[in-house]
């Protein structure tokens, strides 16, 4: 997988320039930084595979992260597990709204979720106003999820890996998971085939929302403050991570493992540019080049295949 090669190369080169890059603390920071983006990219990949997209994930994440603060303010003694359930339910509900609109209105998901992105963000802004919740307001055990490690891995990173594994198995080895690929590969053929396209697309958006909700809960654990603007602009990073990780925006192609690696790559680039003292501006430019490279590679293979098809058809005559 090219993205894995790029990631290893990036880490090795950075380490050669600055040997502090792979110190224990630095590795832990790398993982913590990547965790939330990995979950979001996993969620987004599920939707992208069906030839849809969800641009409202930043707003959903903000909404859920802010709810975490509000929840602990109202119920400081509640067990930490409850907030995970609440966060995923809220995220799943918002995702289902997207899914329902996309399947019923038959308008491209790009437009629908652009709309819900503003709508969700607007609701959050009205609700939050200028209020912010700080990590100190939450129960200490909640904050510790982002500090303590098991076998050297932060707990929230373990959660992310578990989620990635479950979704990866579901997409590769469960019938509904395979249906998602079929739908993204050719929606008309899927309908002709008798696949329940609408139900599956609704499922994909709901799953994306629920996983984004999980990421929102972890965001509240990991970062110091959450407010009306939490998660703004994140949706583009997420789509970028998935695309760099080999998930085709045109659907039917890619894996969540790839999307996860794409997320790790993007978040590691930031760290390694800091470690090698490169101007921060270059980070965005390099991400841009990576996306273009991913798209070009994708396109070139597609054209090659198409040419092969035409030649083989001509030969049949």
């Amino acid at each position: 997988m090219p993205v894995a090669v790029a990631l290893v190369t990036l880490i090795v080169v950075t380490w050669l320039i600055n040997d502090q890059f792979l110190s224990a603390q630095s590795v832990k920071d790398l993982m913590l930084n990547a965790t939330i983006l990995v979950i979001l990219a996993t969620a987004q990949a599920v939707v992208l595979i069906t030839r849809n997209v969800d641009l409202s994930v930043g707003a959903i994440l903000g909404m859920v992260a802010f709810s975490v603060g509000a929840f602990f303010e109202a119920a400081p003694q509640a067990p930490v597990a409850v907030i995970f359930v609440v966060g995923m339910l809220l995220g799943g509900l918002l995702g289902a709204v997207n899914g329902a609109l996309v399947t019923v209105a038959k308008v491209p998901a790009l437009v629908i979720t652009l709309g819900t992105m503003y709508a969700f963000r607007g609701i959050l802004s009205t609700w939050a106003g200028s209020k912010q919740y700080f990590s100190g307001d939450n129960p200490a055990s909640f904050g510790r999820l982002s500090v303590e490690t098991v076998l050297g891995l932060p707990i929230i990173t373990l959660i992310a890996l578990a989620v990635l594994a479950v979704v990866a198995v579901y997409l590769a080895f469960r019938r509904p998971g395979r249906d998602l690929y079929a739908i993204g590969s050719d929606p008309d053929a899927a309908k002709l085939f008798g696949i329940r396209v609408q139900a599956r697309v609704l499922l994909a958006f709901t799953a994306c929302g629920a996983l984004t909700g999980l990421a929102g809960v972890l965001y509240a654990s990991r970062y110091n403050s959450v407010g009306a603007l939490t998660g703004s602009g994140l949706e583009l990073d997420v789509v970028a991570a998935a695309v760099v990780g080999g998930v085709a925006i045109s659907g039917g192609v890619g894996t969540v493992v790839g999307a996860g690696l794409g997320a790790v790559l993007l978040s590691t680039i930031t760290s390694s540019l800091t470690a090698t003292r490169v101007d921060k501006f270059w980070q965005q430019a390099i991400v841009g080049v990576l996306i273009l490279a991913a798209v070009v590679v994708d396109r070139v293979t597609a054209i090659r295949r198409a040419n092969k098809l035409r030649v083989s058809e001509a030969r049949d005559d």
């Binding site: 395979r178 249906d179 993204g184 590969s185 002709l192 008798g194």
Partner: peptide, 21 residues
């Protein structure tokens, strides 16, 4: 159908068995 309706991104085996693997 007159026009084959396959999923180009899936394997041949999977195209045969989609939904009843």
């Amino acid at each position: 159908y007159q026009e084959p309706t396959l999923f180009p991104d899936l394997t041949v085996a999977e195209n045969i068995f989609v939904g009843r693997q």
